[in-house]
Structures are given as structure tokens and as C-alpha cells.
Write a protein that binds this DNA or RNA. Sequence first.
DNA 1: TGAAATGTTGGGGCG
DNA 2: ACGCCCCAACATTTC
Length: 479
Amino acid sequence: MSTALVWFRRDLRLEDQPALAAALAAGHRVVPVYVHAPEEDGDWTPGAASRWWLHHSLQALSGELERRGSRLIVRRGPTLPTLLDLARESGATAVHWNRLYEPASIARDSVVKAGLRSAGLAADSHNGHLLFEPWQVETGSGGPYKVFTPFWRNCAARLDALPLPQAAPARLAAVPATIASTPIESLGLLPRIRWDDGLRSHWSPGAAGALRQLGTFVDETIAGYAKSRDVPASPGTSRLSPHLHFGELSPRQALAAARSASLATRSGTQQGADSFIRELGWREFAHHLLYHFPATTDLPLDRRFERLDWQPPGEPLRAWQQGRTGLPIVDAGMRELWHTGWMHNRVRMIVASLLTKNLFLHWRHGARWFWDTLVDADLASNTLGWQWTAGCGADAAPYYRIFNPVLQGERFDPGGDYVRRWIPELAHLPASDIHAPWAAKPAVLAAAGVTLGDSYPRPIVDLKESRDAALARFAALKA
DNA sequence: TGAAATGTTGGGGCG
DNA sequence: ACGCCCCAACATTTC
């Protein structure tokens, strides 16, 4: 019987796993491999929150494999020599993996593929990470879409033709005991100081946790998703982003679950499912854009924006990062991020707008902070999101779309519950004042135990003044 | 996936 | 009864 390596990367699941399925379909005995090589990620090595997640996800995958009679072989990189070593040790004649689309991944993978083949091994990559390959979705005149709506119209018409998710194999062949594996603990993915309590209490990394979350989402949340996904105080989002990022769940699995939920009769389910599937579309769009425009991790897609003279980073950036801007909904979001490794999407837009359009700091500072702190940090989605906010990306928010954190707070957190949860020092303010404490009457502040400038900061920026200044600078770009 | 400024309309108070 | 003003509510335009 022949042997194949299945090289796991960010597809840490056994269900709907095209690389694994292809190796098994070819009749190979499978040796599952994870190669730890962060230096091959270029400028975008995973941050501490992502590494925490990866540690637990690898452990989960390892357990899943052991329950099926196999085990995960973990090695340190560099990747190509490591895979060649493993092929020699195991007698493997083929290597299978699922494609990734970050610039550094593509560069590394093409070197790996060529190296494996020139060593006489079969090397095959598969699509397990996206609904559609970036080169499969083109405008009528050829070339990539830069606007979401026509992009998604094109994709949506083809959803029916997608393959259905495949079940996980029930059993796998044992991996010979002679093949050594590095303990996952030795990869140094966990933080040295224990700051991860918040993460542990909010998340269950691994495919089992992903499926549980998907089940909860389609059973309980999806019916109200269209509206409640905009309310940061309510558990109205899918919370699937980190699971999708690490491939503990495939987008096809998420799509299939949403579509079968929408067959149910509960009111709102259809609309909620459509709305969620559209979000999967944004995930696709982000990956396709990064594939076609790999420089956009650092440079604006719309090159006119290179001429902006952003403020140099300094104390305002630190205040933003640490959640002490004096603007409650912004600070609540930044503290949610720090404590849980995640931030509600509505609030991500609000804090991003403040950074780029009121503080006038380069979107890269925000992108980098999110990259380092989010458990769902994803180069494609992060790049799209920040360029969208700054107005320099594909299908971008127009430069004059500037969020007012007070109005956004009043509209999407009308009771102030989200602010109260993350800013306990404001917890006793009434809803009518909680989003603009600086405008509250002294007696109200006193009764709530708030001393501006002491127990909670005054705003670090004048919203109206900075808005007008930003508008002027952006308008000058157009000329 | 915006906000603010400006324009329009219509009800009600008032002389 | 009528014109006038005020202003909220809503719509449109502009940045």
C-alpha cells in the first residue's frame, strides 16, 4: 500500500477536507502532518491571540486523528526539507494539501510544490478554503471584480453547483511509530504570561467547537441574524470567524448549514440565512482581492491615497489601542478585543472610522493592531476591512462616510448595555448619557460616580472639528 | 454598513 | 376664518 502525506495548514478538520479525501481516494495510507514555520509567513506572522488559537486547534485535531487510529505528526520547519524528510521516513510518494491565498503562502507553496516534484514526489493542492477559486470568478470583460455586488451576483448564481460537504473518514491507518513528532507544547504558541483567561472563557477552538457553534447559530441565532447582527450587546452574530480562518469549518459546511436552516419555516430564517450567506460572500471577495492584488496588505488599492499625510503614531494611537479615547462605544470595543480576542463587526467599523477619519492615523496601524490581537485575524478580511473603512480599497466606503460614535452608540446600543459590560466605570450612567458622558449634567455624572478626566477620560478628539479637517484632506485628494 | 446641512410639509398656537 | 410663525418630522442634497 502506498503512503501520502496530508499537509495540514489552516484546514484543521477532517470533515469536508479535500486534501485528505483526495489522498484516501487514491488509495494511500495517510500520514497527517503539521509543519510549524512562522518565519515563512513574511511580515505577517500570527499574533499572540492567533497563536493561542492555533495551539488549541492543533491539539483538537491531534485528538480527532487519534480517535480514528491515526496521529498528527508535528515538526518544525522550514517546510520543504521537513516534508522531504517525512516523505523519506514514511515512504510517502505523494503530498496533498489545501490551498491558501496570502502572498507569502503562495510564494512558499509554489517553491514547495516544485521542490517535491523535482524530488520525484506527486504534489497536489486542492480547494478547501473557499467556495470559488479566485481565478474562477471574472467580470464579463475578464479580470477580477472590484465591486462586491456584481461579484456576489456572479457567485450566488453558482452556489447550487457547489459540491456538498463530505463526511470525515471513520477510521484512518496507523502512523508508524518510527515517525517522530514534536509535542505541540514545544512550539511555544501559548503566552508566557497567562493573559488568556478571557480567551478560554469565550472560545472553543477545534472542529468540534466549530460544529457546536455552527449548530447553535443555525438553531438559535440565524432567524434574527439580519437585524441582531448589528447589535453589539446581543449574541446576534455567528462567531464563526476564527473557526473559518483556521479551517476547522469549511465555507461549504457553513453554507450548507445556513441553506438547510432556511428551509425551516421559522419567520426571519430565510432572511437571516441570506444575510449570513452574503457575509460568506464578503469572505470570498476578500480572498479573491488579496489573490489578485497582493500588495494591498500594505499599499492602498486606490493609489491616490498614498498622497495622504497621515498623523504620526503616538499617544492617540496608544489611547485607541488601550480603550481610553473617552468615546464609550470605541473604548468598549477596544476592551472587548483585548479581553476576548474578538470585536463585534459593527464596533469594528466604528473604531476603524475613528482611527482613520477622526484621529487621521494610517489604516495600517489599525490593521496591524487587529492582526496582533484578534483570534480571527485573517490577512484577506483584515486588509479588505481596513481599506474599505479608509476609503482606499475595493468597493470602499466613500471618504465622507464618517461614523459618529455617539450616534452609532445611540442607534445600535440604545440601552448602553454593551458599553456597561466593557466599561464598568460608566455602568451607572443612564442610557441617555452613556454614549456622551462629557455632555452629561454634573449632577448626573456625580450620581453615577463618574469624574471626567479621572475615572473616565474626556474625549481625546473633537468629533466635529476632526471630521471637518478629515473631509478637507480627503476632498483635496480628489482634486 | 454615515452624518450634517438644507429643503419641504403640515399641524397647531396665536393674534 | 385667516395669515403668520414655529417647529417637528421627514425628504433631499452635500460632504
